[in-house]
C-alpha cells in the first residue's frame, strides 16, 4: 500500500464523510419521507428509492435522507418534508417520482421551494 500524502488524507476524509455525516445528523438539508402504513400503501417506497438514486447520481454529500411515520394527512400521501438549515420546513404532498425529481433539483440543490407541489410552508413544531 502506498504511503498517504496530505491530499490522500483529504480525499479519504471527504469520501468517508458521506457516511459519517449521517451519524452527526448535521447535513445542509434533510429530506424526510413519511412512511407510515398509509404512505407505504400510497407509494412512499418509490419516493425513497428515487431519492436514494438522486443523491447517488448527483454525488451529493450534505443531504440526509430519513423516514418518519404517518404525517396525519393520509389522503395526500406520499408525502415528504424538506428542511434546509435555518429555513422553515416545507411539506410536499401527492408525490410522484417526477415531482420528487423536480423538488430535489429545485429545492434541495437549488434552495428554491417548489410551491406548486407544496402543501403549506412551515410545519407543526417538531423536536
Amino acid at each position: 500500500m502506498p504511503k498517504l500524502n496530505l491530499e490522500d488524507l483529504d480525499k479519504i476524509s471527504e469520501w468517508r464523510r458521506r457516511t459519517t455525516m449521517l451519524r452527526e445528523g448535521a447535513g445542509r438539508a434533510k429530506v424526510t419521507v413519511h412512511m407510515g402504513t398509509c404512505g407505504i400503501a400510497a407509494g412512499a417506497r418509490k419516493i425513497m428509492d428515487a431519492l436514494l438514486r438522486l443523491v447517488e447520481e448527483n454525488d451529493v454529500k450534505d443531504v440526509i435522507l430519513t423516514t418518519s411515520g404517518c404525517a396525519g394527512l393520509c389522503s395526500r400521501e406520499p408525502m415528504a418534508t424538506v428542511e434546509l438549515v435555518n429555513e422553515a420546513p416545507v411539506k410536499y404532498v401527492d408525490l410522484t417520482e417526477e415531482k420528487i425529481g423536480a423538488i430535489f433539483r429545485e429545492h434541495v440543490l437549488g434552495g428554491r421551494p417548489v410551491l406548486e407541489y407544496a402543501l403549506a410552508l412551515g410545519s407543526e413544531r417538531t423536536q
Binding site: L6, L9, I12, S13, T19, T20, R23
Partner: peptide, 20 residues
C-alpha cells in the same frame, strides 16, 4: 460515532489532521 476498527472513519472526523 465511528467504527473503532476502521481508520477511514477516524480520518473522516478530522483524524490525523493534527499530525499533518
Amino acid at each position: 460515532m465511528i467504527d473503532p476498527e476502521n481508520i477511514d472513519d477516524y480520518i473522516a472526523r478530522d483524524g490525523y489532521r493534527s499530525l499533518a
